[in-house]
Computed example of a mutant assay.
Amino acid sequence: MRRRLLLALPGLLAVEAASAQTPYPTKTVRLMVGANAGGGTDIVARMLAEKLAESMKGTFVVENKPGASNTIAGDLTAKAPPDGHTILVATNTGQAIAPHLLRLGFDPIKDLIPIGLVVNVPNVLVVGASVPVNSVVELIAAMKARPGEFKYASSGVGSTQHIAGEAFDAAAGVKGMHVPYKGSAQAHLDIIGGNVQMMFDTTSSAMGQIKAGKFKPLAVTSERRSSELPDVPTLAEAGLPGFDMTTWYGVYVTAGTPPDIVTKLQAELTRIVALPDVQAKLRGLGGEPGTMSVEQFARFNAQEYERFGRLIREANIKPE
């Protein structure tokens, strides 16, 4: 009898472990996005919501909470019940940049658990179709000839677009006027309407306007050319070396979320990002799908926090 009990013990423990798993999801899961609908973060979040709903047999909805340099969504996630039913789809704007510029009610390193990297997207310098320049050289010459007249849009103070614009001004010896928005959608309308001349937008957000002929792409701000814009030079190729300003998109949950839910979400995200149709969509947005392990992304997240803090101090960027 004792031998039978011992032989049965591993099976009993497995049953107990399985029954101890936290049920998930048990209600609607909110994917928080710190920007308006239509922007790069929103596009990524809606794709993830669809895939998660399919595989996890639950309801996943995207909630747009623009403002405060994409940190409102992060604040809501950090303060949500730690049950995995609030997920943050964030960029380095909210996670690594804004904390150095704004007084936040949460700590993006301590109060959020990294789930994984979805995609890394280069920024592209675009001008409106009516702006009479067709290269970086021509843009610099025009900005020098008409100082203060060229306005550049961003998705907020301290965003990667803002930092790229400040770095461009310093490298090119020009001075553009920064015009911050709550997201890319309104900025696009003002560029198309001629109220703003230029923007360092993500390829994922700008690609539709580029394909429609409403934006002219002059250069990408990554080390290599974008696979979706192979004829567009890097800023280094255009004569301004040293630029590496990309926007990455990652997924986070509230600190304190049960480990089995965290593990389940990490496995699901890894599986989803590897799907052929998802890879194709991410590359179609001009991005490189994430390939980091969970541990690598956690380290990368912390390193980017430090890197952007240093860049902000060097450029003396202040909240407006």
Rank of each mutant, 00 (worst) to 15 (best):
G173V: 08
N70H: 15
L12V: 07
F168K: 00
Y305F: 15
Q296C: 09
G39F: 01
D277Y: 06
A315C: 06
I140A: 04
G39P: 05
G39E: 15
Q266A: 09
F60W: 09
F300T: 03
N92K: 01
L235F: 00
L117C: 00
V62H: 00
A68M: 12
P25G: 03
I140P: 06
L240A: 07
R30V: 11
G208D: 08
R46E: 07
P10I: 08
F243M: 03
A35K: 06
L189N: 13
Y305T: 03
D83T: 00
V15S: 11
I192M: 12
G116H: 06
R46P: 01
S55R: 15
N123Q: 10
S69M: 03
A298H: 02
L9A: 14
K264Y: 13
D244N: 09
L311N: 10
V253D: 02
E149N: 11
V33C: 05
A37G: 14
V131E: 04
R283V: 13
T263D: 15
I115G: 05
G158R: 01
F243N: 04
A37V: 14
K65L: 15
L311G: 01
T93C: 02
D169K: 01
P25E: 06
G40W: 08
G213P: 01
I97V: 12
G173K: 05
D42H: 15
A14S: 09
F300N: 03
A236P: 04
P289M: 08
R225L: 12
N301H: 14
V133R: 04
T91K: 04
V119M: 01
K211A: 11
V179L: 11
E228K: 14
K79T: 13
K281Q: 15
A171I: 06
D244M: 01
F300L: 10
P23W: 05
E288I: 11
I272P: 02
E138V: 00
E320L: 14
V61C: 11
L31N: 02
D75F: 11
R103P: 08
E223N: 13
A80S: 13
P147I: 10
E63W: 00
T263M: 13
A274M: 14
M143D: 04
E63Q: 14
V133A: 05
V174S: 06
V15F: 00
M143I: 07
I43M: 13
L285Q: 13
A14R: 09
D83A: 11
L269F: 06
G309D: 00
I97P: 05
S154M: 05
I115R: 01
D201T: 09
A17L: 14
V196A: 05
A145T: 15
F243A: 03
D42K: 03
M143S: 08
R30C: 04
G74V: 06
K214N: 13
L52G: 04
N120K: 08
P132T: 04
D244A: 04
R299Y: 07
G105E: 10
R30E: 11
L218R: 08
Q303F: 03
R2F: 14
D190C: 00
N123C: 06
L229W: 08
E50N: 02
L189E: 15
A78W: 01
L265K: 10
K175C: 07
A78S: 12
K151Y: 05
A185D: 10
G194P: 07
